[in-house]
Design a protein around this nucleic acid. Structure first.
Lengths: 145, 145
DNA sequence: TGGCAAAAGCTATTTTGTATCAGAAGTGTC
DNA sequence: GACACTTCTGATACAAAATAGCTTTTGCCA
């Protein structure tokens, strides 16, 4: 389920993808909607990885986030996999009100405009999160048809 | 503490600013850093408004958010006052890692570029939140001097 | 094989946010 | 005034999200 580009990235970076981390990453890639931390606990439990506690999942998420493999959708308290690990500090997410799908949306113009604008007012950006809520194309089409 | 532009806005919109809502709005305007919900409970308690429960504060925040008087900083689970109520659906925030100051940053180019880009991929935006973390000008100057 | 570091486990707690039902206070209407 | 009606608040309980602190396991490697 995990794309080869991602597994290749992990190998290149020599990341230790333990069973727990693998299950979590797998599950995130199997779903299009953002996944909640406590759902991941349940997933681990079902996969017979003992009876994991919150800290276990949060530590794994921490690791995956630090490596850029996962994004947190702050507005939903949920997580999605990153399609381009190691390639951006500016994360742009589109979240459909209707189907809860969450897509990464990486637009270079936008990504470059933000630091440009901030430079004018003396703000030095380290990381940014853009979360846009609305209706995705599929749902728009479904409604009008 | 609440700017006259804001009180004028409330009057124009005929908003019922009850004592609880006033204390919350006051407190948000007195501080430059984002305020947490449970800190607001404490503030109300200190102002001798009984012993408020979480729901009380969240209801007030809900109201203030719906009226556009307050923004939630999702990445921090905290709240700041809005400087331009009723004027934007796209919220842009700059959060300083160093001093925790949170500023609204309303750039028209940015605000108009986002829907433009999204239109190309068929996403209909309803609302968006941009949260940028980094170092504000004051802190940058303080460090280099 | 002894020592180290990273990962995972465990227990408990804190922080954040909702659901629900009941009561109080204002407003308009007959 | 009696009445419905709405809005706000109070109170209890609970659910959900996240962290703290400490122990144990595991793999590595010198």
């Amino acid at each position: 389920m995990i794309p080869t580009t991602i597994t290749a990235f992990c190998q290149r970076q020599n990341l230790e993808i333990t069973p727990i981390r693998k299950v979590i990453l797998d599950h995130l890639w199997q779903n299009h909607t953002p996944i909640k931390a406590y759902d991941l606990i349940e997933v681990l439990r079902l996969k017979a990885i003992g009876s994991p506690k919150p800290a276990t999942v949060y530590r794994s998420i921490d690791f995956l986030e630090r490596q850029g493999l996962v994004h947190k959708v702050h507005a939903l308290n949920a997580y999605i996999p990153c399609h381009h690990p190691g390639q951006h500090t500016a994360c742009q997410l589109l979240i459909c009100d209707n189907c809860n799908d969450a897509k990464e949306f990486c637009d270079d113009d936008l990504a470059s405009l933000i630091p440009l604008k901030l430079a004018k007012i003396g703000f030095q950006p380290r990381a940014s999160v853009l979360e846009v809520f609305g209706t995705c194309q599929q749902c728009t089409e479904a409604k009008t048809s």
